[in-house]
């Protein structure tokens, strides 16, 4: 039975542009061997159908909207091209797995922090803000056993108060340097942050 292989390839044509391009350029070579001739014919036809690109646009719009809704402050730090490049690379490494995007947003924060650590990415305040939003998401993560999320600690090198306030309005301020920590916890279902400075 090759229906699972056919569905897998059709879904990949939508979500994976490298795979789609491979099918377009090398025709059938990029497709699995266990497809029927009719399934191959269908996949090849879809790969060059303009409707595939529209479907991909809808897929991307849905995924992007959900991801960025979880990370409004991180999003505010980026210019359009850099953000598109980083998300594109992140998605290349991580296929979509769920309708629920909190885990993907957490993974994107991890990805950004790794890129900074590797010296591949330099965006002002990003290390602090990605760590802050990651911590906030950890606190919001569903815990079916009802357990309390662990305390979150985020280190800042700039004063977080003007920084977070400005980013919430989509602005990037010139925040003064200040080494401090935000301690985050979930109190009665609400995120509570406390500041501790050196």
């Amino acid at each position: 039975m090759s229906a699972p292989a056919f569905q897998s390839a059709l879904a990949r044509l939508i979500v994976d542009p490298d795979f789609r391009d491979g099918v377009r350029e090398r025709r059938g070579e990029a497709l699995a061997a266990d497809l029927t001739p009719l399934e191959r014919e269908r996949l090849l036809a879809v790969s060059v159908d303009p409707g595939l690109d529209v479907t991909r646009t809808l897929h991307k719009g849905f995924r992007l909207g959900k991801l960025l809704a979880y990370l409004p402050l991180t999003r505010a730090l980026f210019d359009r091209d850099t953000l598109a490049r980083e998300i594109g690379e992140f998605w290349r490494r991580r296929p979509p797995v769920s309708f629920y995007f909190l885990e993907e947003a957490l993974a994107f924060c991890e990805y950004l922090l790794e890129r900074i650590e590797e010296g591949e990415l330099e965006v002002r305040y990003l290390e602090e803000i990605a760590a802050y939003e990651r911590a906030a998401l950890e606190l919001q993560r569903s815990r079916p056993d009802g357990s309390r999320p662990p305390l979150q600690v985020v280190e800042f090198r700039h004063d977080p108060l003007p920084l977070l306030a400005a980013l919430a309005h989509g602005e990037i301020p010139a925040a003064p340097e200040r080494r401090c920590w935000l301690f985050g916890a979930l109190e009665d279902g609400r995120l509570e942050w406390r500041l501790a400075a050196e």
């Binding site: 699972p4 897998s8 879904a11 990949r12 479907t55 849905f62 296929p95 979509p96 309708f99």
Partner: peptide, 13 residues
């Protein structure tokens, strides 16, 4: 939902 190696992908459409 579709197979993707040992995992699954969710196309969201």
């Amino acid at each position: 939902l579709a197979e993707h190696g040992a995992d699954e992908i969710n196309a969201g459409v």
